[in-house]
Design a binder for these strands. Structure first.
Lengths: 140, 140
DNA sequence: GTTCCTGCAAAAGCTTTGCAGAAGA
DNA sequence: TCTTCTGCAAAGCTTTTGCAGGAAC
């Protein structure tokens, strides 16, 4: 599951980001955990492995990753920014009961073509909310 | 443009929200300004008419409105929560240059049907970002 | 009189900024 | 050496909470 050091380092070099120890560990975490973590979650998890890690560095790192297209920023709720290593077109579903965020396929092509003539679209996000199957099962 | 007092009061009563002076003014502002304002903008604008208005009341009021489906909450960016009086299905486009948020038509039906079997969807949002025609024109 | 509403002040939570020391080329 | 990176501390913002006074019915 966890990507090799070489894979991660290469990915960073490809983007022109110097592969520091902290950056490698953060990217390694993201590439191994498709749970759309918040900055806080990333900090807590990577901090276990890199005790000197600071939140400032996590924010700096995530900022670099987002700028270079390595991660996608998810603002599905107002009180939390999440980060997704999967940058391919897809939608996000947040369960309002358990808080988990799921991916689902979305055909972004043609979405909003009508009504956006003359606009230069750079970023497309589809966010759904509701209750996931697991939480629906518990309620019944 | 601005709705009448009766219209606004009736809308509140319909939702079971007591039509206090502050609530009426906030709703009146929303119904007359389709600019997807932030809580801060709403506070500043309505404060001109109601000098005693507090931000706490604005947040309380918007919370009630959102709960009863009178407004839609927009989280297109992490650092700002916006409110939309238009609760019909439509997408939002944010211009990263001037910051304006535009509406555009989106066919939500069928969007994500595949891959969300077993999920109970309550809320659907489509957020696009990029540059609006006006800002594209300035650049050229 | 009882309930709900308002608004000040303070607190909370997340993110950014300033800056000095450390690491790396 | 020179540049870049890291991390502590502090500040900045938006939003929430506690609570006392006030309005409404």
């Amino acid at each position: 599951m966890r990507p090799t050091l070489d894979q991660v380092t290469e990915e960073l070099n490809k983007r022109g980001i110097k592969p520091s120890h902290q950056r490698i560990k953060v990217l390694q975490y993201l590439m191994g955990h498709f749970v759309h973590p918040t900055a806080d979650t990333i900090y807590n998890e990577v901090h276990k492995e890199v005790p000197t890690l600071s939140k400032t560095t996590v924010y700096n790192t995530l900022g670099h990753f987002a700028e270079t297209g390595l991660v996608r920023v998810i603002n599905i709720e107002d009180n939390e920014t999440r980060y997704d290593i999967n940058v391919h077109d897809h939608g996000h579903f947040k369960c309002l009961v358990c808080g988990a965020v799921y991916d689902f396929p979305v055909d972004m092509d043609g979405l909003g073509e009508t009504g956006l003539a003359g606009f230069a679209v750079q970023d497309r996000n589809v966010y759904f909310k509701g209750t996931c199957p697991a939480c629906l099962g518990i309620q019944n």
